[in-house]
Simulated assay, not measured.
Amino acid sequence: MIGLDSQARIWLCTQPTDMRKSFQGLSALVRNQLKQDPLSGHYFVFINRRKTQMKMLYFTGTGYCLWAKQLQQGQFPVPKSNASHHALTLADLQLLIDGIEVQKYRQFKRFKRV
Rank of each mutant, 00 (worst) to 15 (best):
L95E: 11
D37K: 06
K21E: 14
F76R: 03
Q103V: 05
L26V: 08
L90P: 00
R110F: 00
L57A: 08
S40R: 13
K112W: 02
I10A: 01
F76Q: 08
D18G: 05
L93G: 03
T60E: 15
L95Q: 12
K35F: 11
T14A: 04
V102R: 08
I47L: 00
V45R: 02
N82I: 02
D37C: 06
Q7V: 07
K55M: 08
M54L: 15
A83M: 08
A28I: 06
H86Y: 13
R50Y: 07
S22N: 11
A83N: 11
R31A: 14
Q107F: 04
S81R: 03
T52R: 11
N32Y: 08
L96N: 03
Q7S: 14
K51R: 15
L29D: 01
M1E: 11
F59E: 12
G99Q: 03
T52L: 04
Q73K: 14
V45F: 04
T17K: 01
L4S: 04
L71I: 02
Q73H: 12
Q94R: 14
D37H: 02
A28Q: 13
N32H: 14
Y64D: 00
H86F: 12
V114E: 12
M54I: 15
I2Q: 13
Y43H: 06
M1T: 09
H42V: 04
L71R: 11
L95S: 07
S27Y: 02
Y58K: 12
K80E: 15
V45N: 06
A28L: 11
Q7M: 08
G74A: 05
M1Y: 05
Y64P: 10
T17H: 01
D98Y: 02
M19N: 05
F44Y: 10
G3K: 13
W67Q: 10
K35N: 14
S27D: 04
